[in-house]
Design a protein around this nucleic acid. Structure first.
Length: 810
DNA sequence: CGGCCCCGCGTTTTT
DNA sequence: CGCGGGGCCG
């Protein structure tokens, strides 16, 4: 038995072995948190003889759940690992709610509304109530409703809670109507999955008992990110037995805007008497200086569980701070550092990450990386499922499974166009409202229907309804793939996208294909795995509704520099991390900088960023930044002086920055070369003046690198690549950088890629372009490229070595 | 019903 | 500046 735990250190081992009561594992960054969880589960199975289905393990992401299950399988075998009750809060609760739906007045076919559905429902309610949308901003109201739910404040109680703003009294009515509408649509939003689970357990003692009997031991990952509702539900499941183990790091609580409550972690002891606290303080990930620098920063926070993190790895290199005159220069510093480190250490591009506070910062880096021919991939774009064509199909599925789903119905009732106009839809909605039923029920009732709409409209609606009913009748006979495919064909969506040469439609078609093959994979994977004989559309929807976190780490992304926000970097690690844009007005974000709590969270965010680094951590700060169409000047972030100066190297700008490279002319601006310390500046003295002394900008004429570009990466045809492995689709969208394109010192004409007719060029932000025509070759190549956005045009103009003839802006 | 123009806004987002 | 949304026109 001891054999199992032999690879753990003392504190990890202690945390794993203690199973007699509640325990809180405070796990610093890189301290083997997941390790403790997986071993603990294995320990419960092996040493305590628990049955796998009696163990409940909750995570925040599907990815975390998947990985943990996999690692446990390695310890105890596939079979047992599979039987563990393990998943995200939302998916585990959704499953419970499907079983218990009737108790709460839902059916087990209920739909899960995503944030967009929720917002659009709030919007229609506001319209119906004729509220001034300046004063009653639908999105804000949706957010308030969500916050209420995170705090388990029901619509009836809203007026008496602190979230209620008496200057907007009608919000309460919106909330009530919102709940009523969800109910009549047989739908729950993400937050309802929690609220309803809580209601179920707190109001139905028999049901609560049933699940308490089922879950003998509960484990929670990333406990610092739980909100009040989640904490309460967990409490209801564990209060008697107190067999609970939560793991987390208060220093990495960065999701308060989503309701995460760090107090859950800080006050855990007061909820469970005799809580034992285990601290994992040894960091295995990073070198000593990095750990120490991060620690010196986080110690500035008031609110935290005291701990002494340390590393026994090599001292390594201190984090380096580099100042740049502009965002462009910042990007070029990062690029040349990537090449420098890469050639020195012979590592791959996949070992680098560029982390920023806001997504908009990615742009400058994209351009520079592309210029240097460095392959990269941006994380966190629109998820596959957010794309219009995919949402349309899913809306069809939703209506078939649950016709009362108002949001889905609204989406497809006239798509593809079938002559059901706005007025008709509005009449249906009004009638539904007046009769307290769902729009579908209006359509289904011949008397009502003919009463509210014209005869012609009624005919079209009935044709639509019978289409839906036809599919419904096939739900039980056909699996998700067969029926799903049929719906795409028979609905006319396929026809809509077929035969169009519009590049947008071609891309959609490709996504559609990827979707279909994903659907097929889902069905085969599920059928193989489970004793469940029939995999229907409903099963697919359940999966899809709670899925945003998609597989990313397939081979293709391994060789590329990762660009992402710090938020999305949580849980990841890279040999070299660049933390960019360390300026006031960016980091900390001005929105958060108004309160101490906000500032402390931002500080934790920086802590998270630093602790992602294994070997090198390079922080940059641009004095001037191009945004909102103008160059703006910024002070360095106040957080810089929160890091122990003896643990921070102030890097020298490596080379003069070429004026050629500085498209915005920042280096020519009067303040560009002004040393910082000069004007009544307190904190930054030390290393700060240096950027002025090193003759920065002195060699302005000298050229930096080559401005030559390696050509626009050959769009790899399909916008989403090949069909996805497993039931998931890929969300990471990489911008191809020309096959194997090395950063070539000499501009290689046509190297890497050549434009070909029919080729698709895709860019995450600027959309897609399609090469329609190519004439001539070499210097004289002329290509006609259709594109949608001006951003794409700029990109083409800037990077392609071809003459771009503006095509249709479809 | 789609296309065009003007206005307003600009943080992070595991489910 | 660049985008999404709403309003208006053809």
């Amino acid at each position: 038995m001891d054999e199992l735990l032999k690879s753990l250190n003392d504190s990890q081992r202690a945390a794993v072995e203690y199973c007699d009561g509640a325990s809180l594992v405070v796990a610093g960054a890189g301290s083997g948190k997941t390790r403790v969880l997986t071993y603990k589960i294995a320990w419960l199975l092996k040493a305590h003889g628990l049955q796998p289905w009696h163990i409940l393990a909750l995570t925040f992401t599907n990815k975390a759940a998947r990985e943990m299950r996999q690692r446990i399988a390695g310890l105890v075998g596939e079979e047992e690992a599979r039987r563990l009750r393990m998943g995200t809060f939302h998916s585990v609760f959704a499953r419970i709610l499907r079983v218990e739906a009737l108790t709460l007045g839902y059916t087990s076919q209920f739909t899960i509304y995503d944030q967009n559905d929720a917002r659009s429902l709030v919007k229609s309610i506001c319209r119906e109530m004729e509220l001034d949308d300046k004063k009653y901003k639908p999105n804000d109201i949706a957010d308030v409703i969500s916050q209420c739910k995170n705090h388990l404040v029901l619509a009836e109680d809203f007026e008496h809670c602190s979230l209620f703003d008496s200057s907007r009294p009608h919000e309460a009515e919106v909330f009530r109507r919102y709940q009523a509408r969800c109910k009549s649509a047989n739908a729950m939003d993400f937050d309802d999955l929690l609220v309803n689970t809580w209601l179920l357990f707190s109001q139905h003692e028999d049901i609560r008992r049933k699940y308490v009997e089922l879950f003998h031991f509960v484990l929670v990952d990333e406990y610092q990110d739980t909100n009040h509702a989640q904490q309460q539900i967990i409490y209801l499941l564990t209060k008697e037995r107190q067999c609970i183990c939560v793991v987390g790091d208060d220093a990495q609580s960065i999701y308060s805007f989503r309701g995460a409550n760090i107090e859950n972690m800080l006050n855990f002891q007061s909820l469970y008497n005799d809580t034992r606290i285990f601290k994992l303080e040894q960091n295995y990930r990073s070198t000593q200086y990095i750990v120490q620098a991060a620690d010196s920063l986080i110690k500035k926070n008031q609110q935290q569980i005291p701990k002494d993190v340390y590393s026994e790895n090599a001292h390594g290199e201190r984090p380096i701070l580099k100042y740049a005159t502009s965002d462009k220069e910042e990007a070029s510093i990062v690029c040349s550092d990537i090449e420098r480190i890469r050639s020195k250490e012979q590592c791959s591009y996949g070992d680098f990450a560029i982390l920023y506070r806001t997504n908009s910062q990615s742009r400058a880096f994209e351009e520079q990386l592309r210029k240097n021919g460095i392959p990269y991939t941006i994380y966190g774009g629109l998820s596959f499922y957010q794309r219009k064509e995919i949402k349309d199909i899913i809306a069809y599925y939703r209506v078939v499974v649950n016709p009362n789903d108002e949001e889905a119905l609204r989406r497809i009732i006239n798509y593809p166009a079938r002559g059901i106009g706005d007025t008709t839809v509005r009449k249906i909605a009004d009638s539904a409202l007046a009769n307290g039923i769902s729009p579908w029920q209006v359509i289904e009732s011949p008397q009502l229907l003919t009463q509210v709409v014209s005869k012609a409209a009624a005919g079209k609606l009935q044709a639509f309804a019978s289409l839906i009913r036809l599919w419904q009748s096939r739900l039980h006979a056909e699996d998700a793939y067969t029926l799903g495919r049929a719906i795409i064909e028979e609905s006319g969506i396929a026809r809509e996208l077929m035969g169009s040469s519009n590049p947008e439609d071609i891309s959609r078609r490709e996504n559609l294909d990827a979707f279909i093959s994903g659907l097929r994979d889902f069905v085969t994977a599920e059928a193989e795995d489970e004793r469940q004989p029939h995999i229907g559309l409903g099963d697919f929807l359940q999966e899809v509704a709670l899925l945003t976190d998609l597989d990313s780490d397939d081979d293709a992304t391994q060789q590329k520099v990762s660009l992402m926000t710090i938020h999305s970097a949580k849980g990841l690690e890279f040999s070299t991390v660049f933390i960019v844009g360390l300026e006031e007005n960016i980091f900390p974000s001005p929105m958060s900088a108004t309160s101490l709590k906000g500032l402390e969270e931002e500080r934790r965010l920086l802590y998270v960023a630093i602790t992602r680094a294994e070997h090198h951590c390079i922080i940059t700060c641009a004095e001037n930044r191009f945004r909102y169409g103008r160059m703006e000047h910024d002070e360095p972030s106040r957080f810089i002086k929160d890091i122990d100066p003896s643990l921070l190297t102030i890097g020298r700008p490596r080379k003069a920055f070429s004026a050629d490279d500085d498209a915005f002319g920042a280096s020519r601006l009067p303040w560009a070369r002004k040393p910082y310390g000069s004007s009544a500046n307190t904190g930054y003295g030390a290393g700060r003046g240096s950027s002025a002394n090193t003759g920065y900008g002195a060699g302005r004429g000298s050229s930096y690198g080559s401005t030559a570009n390696t050509g626009y990466g050959a769009g790899r045809g399909s916008s989403y690549g090949s069909p996805m492995p497993g039931p998931n689709f890929r969300r990471v969208q990489s911008v191809p950088s020309g096959e194997g394109s090395r950063p070539s010192p000499t501009p290689s004409r046509g190297g890497g890629s050549t434009l070909q007719e029919g080729m698709t060029i895709e860019h995450q932000r600027f959309g897609i372009g399609r090469v329609v025509k190519v004439e001539g070759s070499g210097e004289n190549t002329k290509a006609t490229i259709n594109f949608r956005t001006t951003g794409m045009k700029q990109l083409l103009l800037r990077f392609a070595k071809y003459t771009i003839i503006e095509g249709d802006r479809d």
